[in-house]
Design a protein around this nucleic acid. Structure first.
Lengths: 346, 346
DNA sequence: GGGTAGCATGACAGCGCTATCAATAAAGGT
DNA sequence: ACCTTTATTGATAGCGCTGTCATGCTACCC
């Protein structure tokens, strides 16, 4: 049977409450007393019982990560989880994963249900949940604290979480393509509920505009952030009379689909076609040719979002929206535009 | 303030204990009473408080997944997590992730520490933890229940968890290479602490033996289950005087490394070289050419391991070792051996 | 030196549930 | 009808901690 707080109190010759103070880093404990308690706790190998702590303290010491179920196995989520776990570890909090179906009509109810059942002290929301204004309003009503990652939508108050200037990143990536001589640059867009899709598309358009290239609706095909969507988008683009010389996909998975279809058709990358992605997933490094993409510091994003959430749980009013940096990763999949095309298209 | 069990009891006109019985599916509750309680609970939107439940019941309703930290973001783990979550959902259990450093000398202490702190009702161990006999012995001593996934090592009693005949799968994959006409088949092995590495190597040798091909030590290079290890292994093999016409890597990540290095050198796959992997990760489908590999039902494995663990928590004595099927996924990376070589090597 | 903060500590109730065991109701056997 | 057995229900005592509030102690002020 593990030691209880009372055992430690007796061993240290103090009251339970003092032991509790020491373990919760509360003020007003003499240094000498603290040391005595810590020694006793160590000798007895004492660990506070989390359930008792939660019950008495009316807190769960738990935060939930809410994400879209089909994306459950994506490395984007995985990295966020790793960062979140690191932050929890440091604060004696636990992390709970809540893959929910976003497509279902009842995803707001599903989140409410999850909160009611597990009573986390806060939520971390990633897109598309982070962009669902109705959901956020409901959480505000219920007094549930939350942090968001890469949310686009506006809400009535200051946000907590992380943000990355995806629009600027996409514009920069597009500018990079232009600098390589490409003029016909296509975009495989992401799904609509994700704010990120709109940002990236907007950035693509910014990049074109700044280069003085007219936006051509025909060159934007809708995707779905998936490998299959990338293949479908690529097929549409390759079957055009004047196919693009560069394709910027809204994320790495769909970029991989584009590359796969290109290589299946004998299109050489980057000689005949340059491909650009977004996210810098592990896969993007492992495909051949390795993918030029935008790195998002997902692990840091998970960690920071959790840290800010925990700060705001400890002290309502604390916790901010932290801007994290992106980074262009130029790898093998991008290169100079084919000469012939460049001449033709100018 | 959420409803408490007492509120439900009053509303249903029964005692708290009866409500408790209903919510824990205990026997000896009249059908009519059960219905009344359920109606009252629904009307009050009652959810049992998990902390109170744990404290009073002396159980945490929590199982931990223990895995190697650097592999934290691997899709193998991710899939296992998804399966585990599904099983937990159904049993009103929670899942906790415990990425620990296996390489550290103190990984046994780290596991003990984790158990002491969070008090899970059981653990799910994946390799290399699942293969660490000293760890398992210690857990047995401490009376901690656990299930293992793909463990190779023998222990003194019946195991609980899942197992897959990786040796047979590797032999079959090797036989497939032989059937395609390959004679010089190399193997990029995995790291030693993983029982899986030894199994797969043994299967590779089985496959060769059955085909009457002499085992050539030179054709086995040590890897580490990583993309980089695959590249390093491939370099070693390609620089040989008589390079192999087929390379069987111990997992998909290293197989991707092999393919990447081959394509960088202008070696055509599968025309000049066939590549085989193991695991069927999402990446294996997305690389070009798509990878011929062995599918492991990781998601099912996670689910089944959790189910068996939960069964054994409910009823010590229950819970078994479930054999799960593998499946060869023949895709683009494998093809007939080059004619010239086939003739030479016969 | 008396008063008054403020720091340090303790006593004790109670968080919401389950376990135990007693009490009652229903069922069955003679 | 009575007794025994079994099914169903309830009263109550904690589980191990934290919150509240009371109390003792120290230091410092004029």
């Amino acid at each position: 049977m593990p030691a209880r707080i009372e055992d430690v109190a007796v061993a240290a010759g103090v009251s339970m409450k003092t032991v509790s103070r020491v373990f919760n880093s509360e003020p007003n404990v003499r240094e000498k007393t603290r040391a005595r308690v810590e020694a006793a706790a160590k000798a007895l190998n004492y660990r506070p019982n989390p359930s008792a702590r939660s019950l008495a303290g009316n807190r769960s010491y738990l935060i939930s990560l809410v994400y879209d179920d089909p994306a459950a196995a994506s490395s984007y989520i995985m990295e966020i989880i790793v960062g979140m776990l690191a932050a929890c570890e440091n604060s004696h909090y636990s992390a709970m994963l809540r893959p929910l179906e976003y497509s279902s009509e009842d995803h707001i109810r599903a989140v409410e249900e999850s909160v009611a059942q597990y009573r986390p002290d806060g939520l971390i929301l990633v897109p598309p949940f982070a962009d669902d204004v109705r959901l956020l309003q409901r959480l505000d009503e219920l007094g549930v604290r939350y942090a968001t990652i890469s949310a686009k939508a506006k809400i009535g108050h200051e946000r907590i979480g992380t943000i990355l200037d995806e629009r600027k990143a996409a514009a920069e990536m597009t500018a990079h393509a232009v600098a390589l001589g490409h003029r016909r640059i296509a975009h495989v867009a992401g799904p609509l509920p994700h704010g990120g899709s709109a940002w990236r598309l907007a950035g693509y358009r910014d990049g074109l505009r700044r280069a003085g290239i007219e936006y051509d609706e025909e060159l934007v095909v809708s995707g779905g952030f998936s490998f299959e969507a990338g293949i479908a988008g690529a097929r549409q683009l390759f079957d055009m009379k004047h196919p693009p010389t560069a394709i910027f996909a809204a994320n790495d998975d769909s970029a991989c689909g584009v590359m796969h279809e290109a290589l299946d058709r004998g299109i050489s990358i980057p000689r005949d076609l340059s491909v650009f992605g977004f996210d810098d997933t592990p896969t993007s490094r492992q495909v051949w040719p390795s993918l030029t993409t935008v790195r998002q510091p997902c692990r840091d994003m998970g960690r920071i979002a959790a840290e800010q959430l925990l700060a705001s749980i400890r002290d309502p009013g604390a916790g901010q929206l932290v801007r994290v940096p992106y980074e262009l990763q130029v790898r093998q999949s991008s290169g100079p535009a084919p000469l012939r095309t460049r001449a033709t298209q100018r």
